[in-house]
């Protein structure tokens, strides 16, 4: 098999449930070994995109490839290479955590017991507990453990942290991703969809923002933070009503001016300096702020 194929390749994907397109002409490519974020509000088309990768939905137009393979033609091969954690996980409630993991392991050719032990320990999960008695966060932890133990080449996470409390969210996502990427990091790819971007801030290498089924922005995380800046200036008198070229958003509040710059931050800062503000600061937008600014 050609090992230079990207982990995921989506070309002009379109899918419609009824008349309205859920995904419209979406193209993106995820290189192996990367952590790729698919950001969008609820209903933006993230889950539909995931389901097309899993052959749970058939594209109306365009094509998807996973490691160069068509999920429709080569479903078994594709599924052997990946693990998927949906946004709502369900287990047989009468099984214990131990039985659930053994049951899921029975479908896999490979299962890393060391990773399983490590994660059960870190999450303080009781293997003897029935899954029906687990909290939502604990169920997600079991699902993530089960996704990582087979050491798949691709991990698809659909809103893995939605509905969880903030402490749990912050705690486990980097633990899971750290454990997953520990061995053979060059061949451990993560494709994660979320609208809770802050907790993935440091983990994302590259991302696509989706809105109403379309990709509106695709960028590397570092480039995004370099390109998008929030510039604040305070003046002695009411803030001047000047046009700033390259400002995506401008907010005036009395003597204060706040601008969001897209790539032209330095020019805007120079322009502001000429207006002799009392103070002038600029900082990078976080990925969540980039997301919000893009959709405004």
């Amino acid at each position: 098999m050609n090992t230079s194929n990207p982990a995921i390749e989506i070309n002009h994907l379109t899918y419609a449930y009824s008349k309205a397109d859920a995904v419209q002409d979406l193209s993106l490519s995820v290189a192996r070994g990367k952590c790729y974020g698919l950001f969008g509000r609820n209903g933006a088309g993230k889950t539909t995109t995931m389901k097309c990768l899993l052959n749970l939905l058939r594209p109306r137009a365009g094509r998807v490839r996973v490691f160069g393979l068509d999920p429709n033609q080569r479903e078994v091969e594709v599924k052997r290479k990946l693990a998927y954690v949906p946004d709502a996980v369900a287990f047989y409630p009468w099984m214990t955590v131990r039985e659930t993991l053994d049951y899921l392991a029975s479908f896999r050719a490979h299962w890393n017991r060391d990773i399983e032990r490590d994660l059960l320990h870190r999450f303080r999960l009781n293997a003897a507990q029935k899954t029906g008695a687990l909290s939502k966060g604990q169920k997600t932890q079991v699902a993530l453990t089960a996704a990582i133990c087979p050491e798949p080449e691709l991990l698809l996470l659909d809103e893995p942290t939605s509905g969880l409390d903030p402490i749990v969210r912050r705690e486990f996502i980097e633990t899971v991703i750290g454990a997953y990427q520990e061995s053979d990091p060059g061949n451990r790819t993560i494709f994660v969809s979320t609208h809770l971007i802050t907790e993935f801030e440091g983990l994302i290498d590259e991302f696509t923002v989706m809105d109403a089924g379309r990709a509106v922005l695709t960028l590397g995380a570092d480039q995004a933070r370099e390109r998008y800046q929030k510039i604040r200036a305070r003046f002695a008198n009411p803030a001047p009503t000047v046009e700033f070229k390259g400002a995506m958003h401008t907010r005036r509040d009395g003597r204060e001016l706040e601008l969001i710059a897209n790539g032209e931050g330095p020019q805007i800062v120079e322009q502001l300096k000429l207006l002799a503000p009392e103070s002038l600061t600029s900082e990078a937008l976080t990925l969540e702020e980039v997301f919000v600014a893009t959709l405004k």
């Binding site: 070994g33 912050r170 980097e174 991703i177 750290g178 990427q181 801030e201 440091g202 983990l203 290498d205």
Partner: peptide
């Protein structure tokens, strides 16, 4: 990577 909450690639 876990302490800094960043990707191991970084």
């Amino acid at each position: 990577a876990e302490e800094l909450r960043v990707n191991r690639n970084t």
